[in-house]
Design a protein around this nucleic acid. Sequence first.
DNA 1: CTATGTTTAGACCCTC
DNA 2: GAGGGTCTAAACATAG
Length: 316
Amino acid sequence: MPRPGRNTYSDQKPPYSYISLTAMAIQSCPEKMLPLSEIYKFIMDRFPYYRENTQRWQNSLRHNLSFNDCFIKIPRRPDQPGKGSFWALHPNCGDMFENGSFLRRRKRFKVITPDPLAAVGAKPSEAAHYLQQQHAKLRLSALAATGAHLPPVAGYNLGAASPASTFKHPFAIENIIAREYKVPGGLAFSAVQSVSAGYPLHGQLSSAWPHMYGAGAADTAAPISMASADYGAYGVPIKSLCHGGQTLPAIPVPIKATPASVAGLSALPHHLPAFLSNSPQSLSPTSPHAAASQSSPGAPSDALTSPAALQSVAVH
DNA sequence: CTATGTTTAGACCCTC
DNA sequence: GAGGGTCTAAACATAG
C-alpha cells in the first residue's frame, strides 16, 4: 500500500482517499474546520493531480462529506456571511485508518445518536439556553482573541493537554506525520510534542510530507503555520477564519440527525465535548503559543480526550 | 446562475 | 462469495 511522504505524487493520484484528503485539509486549518471551497483549494494546492477534472472529484468529495458521519457540518453564524457551511471532523472519528494506509479505513465511522441536545434529553427551551451559553462562550473567546497578550491556551490539543489523555486525532497533520517518524526502538517522534514544546518542525515536515511542507511550498500556506501574529488567544485567528475576516467560529451543530450522533453525551453540558461545544480551545491549534498555561481542570477541552464524553462507534 | 449539499446507484476493490 | 469501503456519476434541492 502506498504510503504518504515518499514523493510528491506530482501528477499522479495521491494515495489518499477523499476522506483522508478532506480530513487533512480540515486538520490543517487552525480552527479544524473549513468551508468547502477551502477544502478544494487545499487539495488543489498540494496535489496537482486534483487540478484537473475538478468536477469529478469535487462531486465525490461533496458526496463524502455528506455521506460520512466522520464529517460534521457547522453552520455559519449570521455574522459569518458566505456560501455553504464549515466542515469539521467528528472528534470521535477515531482511528479510522490503520497501517498507515490512507486509502482505506478499517472501519466506517458512524455516530449513534441524533444530536447532543437530544442526547441529553434537552427540551427545546433548554436547547435554546444551551445554545445561548455556547454563544456566550464564543463571544468571550472572541474578545480574548482580539487581545494580543492574553494567556495562551492549549489548542485543539489532540490529547496533549491532559497527561492522562492519549487521544490524538488520527487526521491531525502532526499525527499523520508522526507515523512517518518512527524512531528505532519503538519510540515515535511526536510532532505533536514538538509543536507543543515550541520546536519548529517545518524541516522535518518537509521531508516527510513533501507535498504538504515541501521546500517550495512556502507560498502554499504552510498548513500548520503557528505564526503568532496570525492567531490570537485561544488560537482563534485574528485575521479571519480562512477568509472573510470573521473571528468567531460558528456554533457547531451536527446537522445530520442520525440516531446516534452523540450517544454518550449524558454528561452534558458540563462535559460537553470540546469539539461540539465549539469551545475555542477545542478548535484552536496546539501551538507553541498555546502550551501549558491554559486549561482549568475539567475544562471543556478535556472532553475531547475523554472517551466517555462522546461515544460514537465505528460500525461495520 | 452558481456553489453547495443530499441522495441514489453502480462498479470496483479489499478483507474476512 | 459476502459484506463493506471507495470512487464516480447523476439528479435534485437549496442558499447566496
